[in-house]
Each structure stands twice: as structure tokens, then as C-alpha cells.
């Protein structure tokens, strides 16, 4: 079984490409950077890959609103092609700004298998950027690669992460129909809208979404900053308790499972 190839998208203002590249490589993928300009010149390049990752950052400064300008740039030439990529068995991961881009593009949650903006990620209730570790629970969802029932600690770092659906029905659908793959939870492990466990005020504590066929995942908090054991904020306590560091940090599961599924399907 050959290593699945992961495309790590670069664009002006995307700034988490190195750690995303490393995390996928560490999980066994062959990672390759591609700048959005190169990809737009020949969108067929997408077909060489099993995985598309849109890393975090501030694409085009997050001017106008987060992810908007990059999503707009991709929409015409690339939007439908990414949809085909997914339909043909590709997997997509959007982290933080990457998640915002996928949402603006209509690729998430994509409940009706067509590109439209059903939800948004908008200003945190605090109205400013915030960086803090949060506890997440992976829900039983459509996502093909994220195991359910895990409690994970990842850092959130964003100013526009409050998930709002366009109407109450869509909001409920996200939870009831398995689109809300990752949620912020409180000390008791229950989904929460309360600050600071939920850092932005996202409705129903939704921190991450997958699409209708479970091949696309977007998350606001960063698995790409929590995949090594020394990334974890409390690794010293873990080391004191167990005498050594664990193999992975909490974010690694996303990359490992994604690469595993891609390899199995490959």
C-alpha cells in the first residue's frame, strides 16, 4: 500500500502550512505544498492527491471577512472541482481559516450535496481574537475518519469562530443528522455554549463540521498544533504521572485516521 498523497494548500496569508505538512507526513502521507496560483492555473492537479488540506492562517488578511477572499478566488475555477474531488473519493480537511474557507465555499456542511452557504463562522462574542486550549468531544457523525466519543484537547486561536446556521432548521439538522462532528464541551463533558469552554459562543457548541458524505471535515481548533506530545499544555504532569511522554498529542488522531482511510481506499 503506497503512502496517500496530501496536498497542503498555500495562499497569501495561510500560515499553518508547515505544521499541517509535518502532521500529515508524520501520519504516513506524502505531503506536498501547492500554491493557490499554481492550482488555479491547472486545477486538474487536484486529481493527483487523495487528501486536500486547507491550513489555518489569515488568507488575504481575512479582509472583508475571514476566508472570504480566498473562497471567492477558488469558487469559480475550483469550487465544483473540489466537489468532484470529494465525490470521487478524495478527503478534505480545513483547519481554522481553512474551515472558514470551506464554509464560505459551501463545501461545508453541504447538506444537500451542492455548494451554498448554509452556515457561517462569524465574530466571537468577545469581538476579539483569542488563543486558548479547549476540550472537544467527537460526536457520532457522518465523518468517515474521525472516531466518535473521544475527548480531546486542542488549542483554539481565532477571532471569527462562532458558528451560526442560516436558520433554526439547519442548526438542528447539523446536530441531529450527524454533521456536527466536533463540539466544545464543559468540565462534565457536555456540549456547551458557555465561555470560556466554548471560546466564541458557537451555537450548540459546534466546533467542527463534516459534509453529507463524511469526506470533508472542518474544525476551528487546531489539531495541527496538538499532534506532538510536547504540544499539550500539561505534558509535564502527564510525564510525572506516567514516567514518560505518550507517543502523540491529542490532535494526531485526525491525521492518522485520515491517512489510514485514504490508504485503505487508495
Amino acid at each position: 500500500m503506497s503512502a496517500p498523497k496530501a496536498l497542503i494548500l498555500r495562499a497569501p496569508g495561510i500560515n499553518c502550512e508547515r505544521e499541517t505538512h509535518h502532521a500529515f507526513t508524520r501520519a504516513g502521507a506524502t505531503s506536498e505544498y501547492l500554491h493557490i496560483q499554481q492550482l488555479l492555473q491547472d486545477p486538474r492537479q487536484l486529481d493527483r492527491f487523495a487528501i486536500l488540506a486547507v491550513p489555518g492562517g489569515f488568507s488575504y488578511g481575512d479582509d472583508i471577512s475571514s476566508g472570504r477572499v480566498l473562497a471567492q478566488e477558488m469558487k469559480g475555477k475550483l469550487g465544483e472541482r473540489v466537489l468532484q474531488f470529494v465525490d470521487r473519493g478524495g478527503l478534505v480537511l480545513g483547519i481554522c481559516n481553512g474551515f472558514q474557507v470551506l464554509v464560505r465555499l459551501g463545501l461545508l456542511p453541504c447538506t444537500k450535496a451542492r455548494l451554498e452557504e448554509e452556515v457561517t463562522l462569524t465574530h466571537n462574542l468577545s469581538s476579539h481574537y483569542e488563543c486558548r486550549w479547549v476540550t472537544l468531544k467527537t460526536e457520532k457523525s457522518r465523518c468517515l475518519f474521525l472516531p466518535a466519543g473521544l475527548l480531546l484537547r486542542w488549542p483554539a486561536a481565532h477571532g471569527e469562530g462562532r458558528l451560526v446556521a442560516r436558520d433554526a432548521a439547519t442548526q438542528q439538522l447539523l446536530v441531529d443528522e450527524g454533521f456536527a462532528a466536533v463540539r466544545y464541551v464543559d468540565d462534565a463533558g457536555e456540549p456547551t455554549e458557555r465561555y470560556p469552554q466554548n471560546p466564541n459562543g458557537a451555537r450548540l457548541g459546534i466546533a467542527g463540521l463534516c459534509n453529507h458524505n463524511g469526506r470533508v471535515l472542518g474544525v476551528m481548533p487546531h489539531p495541527d498544533r496538538s499532534y506532538l506530545p510536547t504540544h499539550m499544555p500539561d505534558w509535564r504532569r502527564t510525564m510525572l504521572a506516567h514516567g514518560k511522554l505518550p507517543e502523540d498529542g491529542d490532535g494526531m488522531v485526525v491525521f492518522r485516521e485520515m491517512v489510514k482511510v485514504a490508504a485503505a481506499e487508495g
Binding site: 500560515n15 508547515r18 488563543c131 486558548r132 488549542p155 495541527d224 498544533r225 504540544h231 499544555p233
Partner: peptide
């Protein structure tokens, strides 16, 4: 501290708050 991104680049092994 919380308004600054202290995690990007995934190099952090000792954070500003502990």
C-alpha cells in the same frame, strides 16, 4: 496573552500560561 497567537508554527513546548 490570550489575544496573541502563541501556538502557531506548532513549536510551543512551554506556553506563556501554565
Amino acid at each position: 496573552v490570550r489575544q496573541y497567537d502563541h501556538e502557531v508554527q506548532a513549536a510551543s513546548a512551554g506556553k506563556p500560561l501554565c
